[in-house]
Design a protein around this nucleic acid. Structure first.
Lengths: 212, 212
DNA sequence: CGACGATTTGACAATGATCAAGATGTGTGG
DNA sequence: CCACACATCTTGATCATTGTCAAATCGTCG
């Protein structure tokens, strides 16, 4: 899915270069909800969260994105960003002006389909967020989240792992739309029942699922 | 947003015609999650719901779509349908084979952008579903849902109305991810407080919001 | 009218939020 | 390398919200 991996340098050389490779520290702000910057981002390394803020001030993480993901794509339709984007780790992204990307699209029509499938990827994830991570008890949602993170971990290193890397409880809770405390209790319960086993690296858990 | 409204008959005449205008009764099944039919739909009249079923059997309505909406678009990427689509009222849709639509896109490139903005529309609604309709107490979510339906009502007839048409409580509850009973109680509470007033048509409520 | 489905209400149990306190981890500077 | 300060996570206690089961009411349609 990496967007530009199939482009040769020669494909890009002639373009006036508003393509930047950027590195952000953990917890850096890439853009804020409402910003209109006409740039889209592609992740090379690291993870980010997309947060949506309501008028009353409450926050919710609506997406978690890792290597290969394309985000900020609403800019392609000249819309302001619908989310606030924040890095979860040291992050390398490639940032490109929408004008440039559109020019590239005209020259390489296959890029078009590629972007479309990123869009569909977002939509499919969003639907999953609704039906799996926002429906039912915190317990079942937590399990869904863990399997989701396991998948992420799995296709991150190609192999079927059986481990989950936790983000902060604060973030995990905000993904599920619950409180830190309730999430913590749920994890404790799963540990007690032997479904989760903490490894040396405190942020990594091992899974002994029969899932669900 | 109506997809084909700008096409003349002459634009379409030369095409082998796998475009159908279909009418469905209330509560009709258009397609089921998992079906692969390579067709997309555009709504002329009426509303539908998109439902996602989890492996454990639980259901959640993830989208509500009305006149002008384009749905089933995952078919454009040759994917099976991610949802089950069911009409909420008597429904008129236009159904078109993806092959045909792709051909039209090649001939009329502006169609491309139009489809893209439908995609973005879905994504934006999905994000709202997560942050507004799936976060917080049932009370606040219910209010968000009512304002959402008011908006729908409003741009349905162009005028700023102050009324909401209810779907069945079962459906409203499934939009919010709560139980019929809890939703019913919430509505009762809003009626008691004078925020909602039932009209002669029992399905239509009047709103005396300070929304917030 | 009568029957069926939808909605409302009640009672109770289960789940989750919140506030507070303690424990554990992490990073920094000495 | 240790010690302290700060952040994060855990746990407890309590209260509010929500789910569930059951019964009653309302509405609609034949």
């Amino acid at each position: 899915m990496m967007l530009f991996s199939e482009l040769k340098d020669s494909d890009i050389d002639h373009i006036l270069k508003p393509i930047n490779n950027l590195r952000y520290a953990e917890n850096a702000l890439l853009y804020s909800q409402g910003d209109q910057e006409n740039k889209v981002y592609s992740i090379r390394k690291g993870y980010i969260k997309l947060i949506q803020t309501q008028s009353n001030g409450s926050l919710r993480i609506v997406r978690l994105l890792g290597p290969g993901a394309l985000f900020g794509i609403e800019a392609l339709l000249d819309k302001p960003h619908r989310h606030t984007a924040i890095s979860l780790q040291e992050l390398d992204v490639c940032r490109i002006n929408t004008a440039t990307l559109k020019q590239l699209e005209r020259e390489k029509p296959w890029l078009n389909d590629k972007i479309l499938s990123h869009w569909e990827q977002h939509l499919s994830t969003a639907d999953r967020w609704i039906s799996e991570l926002s429906s039912g008890s915190v317990r079942s949602r937590s399990l869904k989240l863990l399997t989701y993170l396991k998948e992420v971990e799995t296709d991150r290193n190609g192999i079927e792992t059986n481990t989950v890397r936790f983000f902060s409880h604060e973030d995990m809770a905000s993904i599920l739309g619950t409180s830190r405390e309730t999430f913590s209790r749920t994890v404790s319960e799963l540990k007690d029942k032997g479904i989760l086993i903490q490894t040396n690296d405190k942020h990594i858990y091992q899974f002994s699922l029969p899932i669900e």
